[in-house]
């Protein structure tokens, strides 16, 4: 539990650092990520090679933001069981085959691999966006593009309340384990009262935090005080990446590169 809380707080820590990506305007990072996600999911279920160049975006952002790979990869790994659970039946139900470079491959396996790649790319882009921007600035950027105030507020408060809920859960787990030596996890019989108590305690805590916010003039707008304008560097980042995404979507770059190289070598 403590590790999970540390992991959530780590994203806040990462967002506060100074590097070329963190310094970009949040709106630009949000728009680039939205377009990236749209392009990734727009590829057909059997397309793999055309999808591969899109890996450059998270890799470049990753390097410029000076992030430790292990931490981000671990977070991506958390969602893999879900994706594998969804896609693992594709090879079972989809028996069509396709011949690639003289070998016959089941289309079910192609769609499964494509799903896993899409998942890795989209989750990585999402994590990188939060880790290089921070939730508050992201909320401000969402307001700029017209996301309703109530939705942005829900997102930001949920993010904050996860920590409060986690804090309460960690305390209760500690108290439980000290009085239940040798138990692994929580006994089924105790789950009802444990969950109920956790819910009520986190309601109380959330109400106190909300009261503290209201006492300092909070009226529903999360004001980050960051009123920086979009600059030339921000626009270069946005236009550069969007151009790359659109070229990747329009042309199968690995195929073109392969044809070009084999053509050159053939001559």
């Amino acid at each position: 539990m403590k590790d999970s809380l540390r992991d959530i707080r780590l994203l806040d820590d990462l967002a506060r650092r100074q590097n070329p990506i963190n310094k970009l305007h949040p709106l630009v990072k949000l728009l680039t990520t939205i377009i990236y996600l749209a392009v990734v999911v727009s590829f057909g279920r059997y397309e793999i090679s055309a999808l591969l160049p899109l890996i450059f975006y998270p890799v470049v952002v990753f390097a410029l933001a000076e992030l430790a790979p292990g931490r981000i990869l671990r977070r991506i790994a958390w969602v893999m069981p879900l994706v594998i659970g969804i896609g693992i039946f594709n090879p079972v139900f989809d028996h069509q085959t396709v011949t690639i470079m003289n070998s016959t491959i089941s289309k079910g396996w192609l769609s499964f691999i494509s799903l896993v790649i899409k998942c890795v790319l989209t989750v990585a882009a999402g994590i990188l966006l939060v880790a290089t921007t921070g939730m508050e600035k992201l909320g401000a950027a969402m307001r700029i593009i017209g996301v309703p105030k109530i939705m942005v507020l829900q997102l930001l408060l949920t993010y904050r309340y996860i920590l409060l809920l986690g804090d309460e859960l960690a305390r209760m787990l500690r108290a439980y384990s000290l009085r239940a030596p040798g138990h692994r996890g929580i006994k089924l019989a105790a789950w009802g009262s444990f969950a109920g108590s956790l819910l009520l305690r986190s309601f109380d805590r959330a109400q106190r935090v909300y009261a503290a916010m209201c006492l300092r003039g909070f009226k529903g707008d999360y004001n980050t005080g960051d009123d920086a304008k979009v600059g030339v560097r921000d626009l270069q980042f946005l236009i550069g990446w969007v151009a790359f995404f659109l070229i990747t979507r329009s042309y199968n770059l690995p195929f073109l590169l392969g044809s070009f190289l084999t053509g050159v070598i053939g001559q």
Binding site: G134, R216, D221, N223
Partner: peptide, 13 residues
């Protein structure tokens, strides 16, 4: 996320 932002929260509101 930072002490500075917390202290600025009220005046910004």
């Amino acid at each position: 996320t930072t002490v500075r932002d917390d202290v600025a929260f009220g005046p910004r509101n």
